[in-house]
Amino acid sequence: NQESVVAAVLIPINTALTVGMMTTRVVSPTGIPAEDIPRLISMQVNQVVPMGTTLMPDMVKGYAP
């Protein structure tokens, strides 16, 4: 099972992602793959992401799977 990126904290809208904001977990449905965390650093979320929420591609500005 592939791990997906999950919010480790509440991430406010338009916040640039940092390593500490993200964790990984096997979830269903799957979100952004864990191995993409290095690509996500400094990208901004386009909505509020509650802690424990799986990051989906459409939540991150400029992210393309």
Results as ranks from 00 to 15, higher is better:
1 N>V: 05
1 N>Y: 03
1 N>S: 15
1 N>T: 13
1 N>K: 03
1 N>E: 12
1 N>R: 02
2 Q>R: 03
2 Q>H: 08
2 Q>C: 03
2 Q>P: 15
3 E>N: 06
3 E>K: 04
3 E>H: 08
4 S>L: 02
4 S>Y: 07
4 S>W: 04
4 S>Q: 02
4 S>G: 03
4 S>H: 02
4 S>F: 04
5 V>K: 01
5 V>N: 00
5 V>M: 02
5 V>F: 01
5 V>H: 00
5 V>G: 00
5 V>Q: 01
5 V>C: 03
6 V>M: 05
7 A>M: 03
7 A>N: 01
7 A>R: 00
8 A>K: 10
8 A>Q: 10
8 A>H: 14
8 A>F: 09
9 V>P: 00
9 V>L: 11
9 V>M: 12
9 V>H: 13
9 V>T: 15
9 V>F: 13
9 V>G: 06
9 V>Q: 12
10 L>N: 06
10 L>D: 07
10 L>I: 13
11 I>K: 00
11 I>Y: 00
11 I>V: 06
12 P>T: 08
12 P>I: 03
12 P>K: 09
13 I>Y: 06
13 I>L: 13
13 I>A: 11
14 N>A: 11
14 N>Y: 12
14 N>K: 12
14 N>F: 07
14 N>W: 14
15 T>F: 09
15 T>A: 15
15 T>Q: 07
15 T>V: 14
15 T>I: 07
15 T>D: 08
15 T>P: 00
15 T>S: 07
16 A>W: 15
16 A>N: 09
16 A>Y: 10
16 A>Q: 14
16 A>V: 09
16 A>M: 15
17 L>W: 02
17 L>P: 02
17 L>C: 01
17 L>A: 01
18 T>K: 07
18 T>D: 15
18 T>P: 00
18 T>H: 11
19 V>E: 15
19 V>I: 07
19 V>Y: 11
20 G>T: 15
20 G>A: 14
20 G>K: 11
20 G>P: 09
21 M>W: 03
21 M>G: 02
21 M>D: 04
21 M>I: 03
21 M>N: 11
21 M>A: 05
22 M>H: 01
22 M>K: 01
22 M>L: 10
22 M>A: 01
22 M>I: 04
23 T>I: 08
23 T>V: 12
23 T>L: 10
24 T>G: 13
24 T>L: 08
24 T>S: 11
24 T>Q: 14
24 T>I: 06
25 R>T: 07
25 R>E: 12
25 R>N: 14
25 R>H: 12
25 R>D: 08
25 R>C: 03
26 V>Y: 07
26 V>D: 15
26 V>I: 15
27 V>Y: 03
27 V>C: 04
27 V>E: 05
27 V>Q: 07
27 V>S: 13
27 V>W: 03
28 S>W: 03
28 S>H: 09
28 S>D: 14
28 S>M: 13
29 P>G: 04
29 P>S: 12
29 P>D: 14
29 P>V: 09
29 P>K: 06
29 P>M: 04
29 P>A: 08
30 T>N: 15
30 T>Y: 15
30 T>D: 08
30 T>A: 10
30 T>P: 14
30 T>G: 10
31 G>L: 02
31 G>A: 05
31 G>N: 01
31 G>Q: 03
31 G>H: 02
31 G>P: 00
31 G>R: 03
32 I>L: 04
32 I>D: 00
32 I>S: 02
32 I>V: 05
32 I>E: 01
32 I>K: 01
33 P>E: 03
33 P>K: 09
33 P>W: 07
33 P>F: 12
33 P>G: 06
33 P>R: 06
34 A>G: 09
34 A>P: 13
34 A>F: 04
35 E>G: 15
35 E>P: 06
35 E>N: 10
36 D>S: 10
36 D>E: 10
37 I>P: 00
37 I>C: 04
37 I>T: 07
37 I>A: 10
37 I>S: 06
37 I>W: 06
37 I>R: 14
37 I>G: 04
38 P>H: 11
38 P>V: 06
38 P>L: 08
38 P>S: 08
38 P>I: 06
38 P>A: 11
39 R>Q: 07
39 R>T: 10
39 R>E: 03
39 R>I: 12
40 L>V: 07
40 L>Q: 00
40 L>E: 00
41 I>S: 04
41 I>E: 14
41 I>R: 13
41 I>N: 05
41 I>M: 11
41 I>W: 10
41 I>Y: 11
42 S>D: 15
42 S>E: 12
43 M>I: 03
43 M>G: 05
43 M>E: 05
43 M>H: 09
44 Q>N: 12
44 Q>C: 04
44 Q>V: 09
44 Q>W: 10
44 Q>F: 13
45 V>L: 08
45 V>M: 05
45 V>P: 02
45 V>A: 08
45 V>K: 01
46 N>I: 12
46 N>V: 04
47 Q>P: 00
47 Q>D: 07
47 Q>H: 13
48 V>E: 07
48 V>L: 15
48 V>G: 14
48 V>R: 09
48 V>F: 13
48 V>Q: 14
48 V>T: 11
49 V>C: 06
49 V>N: 01
49 V>I: 15
49 V>G: 00
49 V>K: 00
50 P>N: 15
50 P>T: 14
50 P>L: 13
50 P>D: 12
50 P>Q: 13
51 M>H: 14
51 M>R: 15
51 M>W: 07
52 G>V: 02
52 G>K: 06
52 G>T: 05
52 G>Q: 06
52 G>E: 13
52 G>D: 09
53 T>C: 04
53 T>M: 11
53 T>V: 11
53 T>W: 09
53 T>A: 14
53 T>Q: 08
53 T>D: 05
54 T>H: 02
54 T>F: 03
54 T>C: 04
54 T>W: 02
54 T>M: 06
55 L>E: 01
55 L>S: 01
55 L>G: 00
56 M>C: 03
56 M>L: 07
56 M>A: 05
56 M>G: 09
56 M>F: 10
57 P>Q: 07
57 P>E: 08
57 P>H: 08
57 P>S: 15
57 P>D: 06
58 D>A: 12
58 D>F: 10
58 D>E: 14
58 D>G: 14
58 D>I: 14
58 D>P: 13
59 M>Y: 13
59 M>V: 05
59 M>L: 04
60 V>Y: 02
60 V>S: 01
60 V>L: 12
60 V>C: 02
60 V>H: 01
60 V>W: 01
60 V>T: 02
61 K>I: 09
61 K>F: 10
61 K>H: 13
61 K>M: 09
62 G>Y: 10
62 G>A: 09
62 G>F: 06
62 G>S: 10
63 Y>N: 03
63 Y>V: 03
63 Y>H: 04
63 Y>R: 04
64 A>K: 14
64 A>R: 10
64 A>V: 13
64 A>S: 13
64 A>D: 11
65 P>T: 08
65 P>C: 08
65 P>W: 02
65 P>H: 11
